[in-house]
């Protein structure tokens, strides 16, 4: 217990010093820029690649290919996570979140449209089945089918002729 107190008493200054040094290192690391030509070349190479990938994403967006847009921004965020655009609140990450939401909405709309197509199909089938049942109800299959000529045509013509003669009289 006593040792613990001694540690607290001695550690105060050391803790402040350690924190200060760590914060300096951290801040310096975050603010670091490529210094040597090799580092500069590497930095520019990464920037060039990232720009090409974002161009791919923008072309895909102009074609309406949201899956490709999402894949491109996800790749950019994943591959160049140290660049400011890929940080939380950065441009790429914001675009990625937006395109993910847009894709989700598109998927829901597509599912709703397909459900509508399926319902239409089932409705059509049901109407056809109903029509078949109606036919079976009014036209029993064991009924004698009259001959197409003679019986069919003679009866209305004869009735019509009678009616006509009746009217004339």
């Amino acid at each position: 217990m006593k040792g613990g107190r001694r540690w607290y008493g001695l550690g105060g200054h050391w803790a402040v010093l350690l924190t200060w040094s760590l914060a300096s290192v951290w801040w310096g690391g975050c603010e670091a820029r490529p210094a040597s030509p090799a580092q500069a070349e590497e930095y520019l190479g990464r920037r060039e690649m990232a720009a090409a990938l974002i161009e791919v994403a923008q072309e895909a967006r102009s074609r309406g290919d949201l899956a490709l847009v999402e894949a491109a921004y996800a790749l950019a965020v994943e591959l160049w996570a140290d660049l400011p655009e890929a940080q939380i609140g950065g441009l790429w990450r914001t675009e990625l979140n937006q395109v993910r939401r847009a894709r989700r909405t598109e998927e829901l709309l597509t599912a709703a449209r397909l459900h509508g197509v399926a319902l239409e199909e089932r409705l059509r089938l049901a109407e056809r089945q109903l029509a078949r049942w109606e036919l079976e109800r009014y036209e029993p299959t064991d009924a004698v089918v009259p001959p197409r000529r003679g019986g069919w045509l003679a009866l209305p013509q004869a009735a019509g002729a009678g009616a006509m003669t009746g009217v004339i009289r």
């Binding site: 540690w7 607290y8 550690g11 105060g12 050391w14 803790a15 402040v16 350690l18 924190t19 760590l22 914060a23 290192v25 951290w26 690391g29 975050c30 590497e42 990464r46 690649m49 994943e78 591959l79 160049w80 996570a81 140290d82 660049l83 890929a86």
Partner: peptide, 26 residues
């Protein structure tokens, strides 16, 4: 104070690790 310092150390470690992408420093 010691806990505070330990917390800052952990925060520093997290901060150092967050900025690395797959294609960094290659």
């Amino acid at each position: 104070m010691c806990r505070w310092a330990l917390g800052m150390v952990l925060l520093g470690l997290v901060g150092c690790g967050q900025g690395e992408g797959e294609l960094s420093r290659r």
